[in-house]
């Protein structure tokens, strides 16, 4: 989902930066609050960031012969919500743009919006709805991770389609083409990501039950 350097016109780069910055600032305030009021959670926050760091850097081959990367935002979304996830994603994306040639500085705002804001927000809403419906924890975690991952790619396809509409089908034509390419690679990877987070969250719940209850506010 990393839109490459210079692929979005300057006006769109500015637009996505303006949309992303408030969320990142909100996330920074959340992280500062966690450090100040709940320092025992620093390590869990670091682990949430590490998952984004590792999973979004790894290009994994998919069944279609092409490769892509998971986003790794599921754990952070469940534990800390979309705002904090936007800050963690922004840190990872800056590192990747500067040192790994993934994405770019001009497209950073757009990439933060898709991976750090839109995907996590959709994942968070899914999580809250499934909690309200009292779905099994494994289903909550799996669905959150999968939705956060896939929505990230839906938004990236939309960001590119708006700028590069097709001659025949317009924005919708480009959107379906880009989305088709992304999703056919991404769906199997999102399922793998969901399974990984089920395992880790189950481990977290067993090894640190008090911490999970403290973060989520009630008993799981």
């Amino acid at each position: 989902m990393h839109i490459a350097e210079g692929f979005l016109p300057p006006i769109w780069c500015l637009f996505w930066f303006l949309v992303a910055i408030p969320f990142v600032v909100w996330g920074a305030r959340n992280v500062a609050k966690i450090f100040r009021e709940r320092p025992e959670q620093k390590l869990v926050l670091a682990v949430s960031g590490a998952f984004i760091f590792v999973l979004s850097s790894l290009h994994i081959p998919s069944v279609t012969g092409s490769s892509s990367h998971p986003t790794g935002t599921g754990l952070s979304v469940i534990l800390y919500g979309p705002a904090t996830t936007s800050l963690l994603s922004a840190i990872v994306l800056i590192f990747q743009a500067l040192l790994l040639a993934h994405g770019g500085l001009t497209t950073l705002g757009a990439n933060i919006f898709s991976m750090g804001i839109a995907g996590p927000t959709a994942g968070f809403l899914t999580f809250r709805i499934l909690r309200f419906l009292k779905a099994r924890l494994a289903i909550q975690v799996f669905s959150t991770a999968v939705v956060a991952d896939l929505v990230t790619y839906v938004i990236t396809a939309l960001q590119l389609a708006v700028v590069y509409p097709s001659a025949s089908g317009g924005i919708m034509g480009s959107f379906t083409t880009f989305l088709g390419i992304f999703l056919i690679t991404q769906i199997p990877l999102a399922i793998v990501e969901g399974i990984l987070f089920i395992i880790f969250f189950d481990y977290l719940k067993r090894s640190r039950p008090k911490l999970v209850v403290q973060i989520l506010g009630d008993k799981m």
Binding site: M1, A4, H59, P61, G65, S68, I181
Partner: peptide, 23 residues
């Protein structure tokens, strides 16, 4: 096992990134 399976069935594929395909 899933990743290994994919690597085996796509042994001769280019494994080009979806980002690169769209670019």
């Amino acid at each position: 096992a899933m990743i290994a399976f994919v690597l085996v069935i796509n042994a001769n594929a280019s494994s080009q990134g979806s980002d690169d395909i769209i670019s």
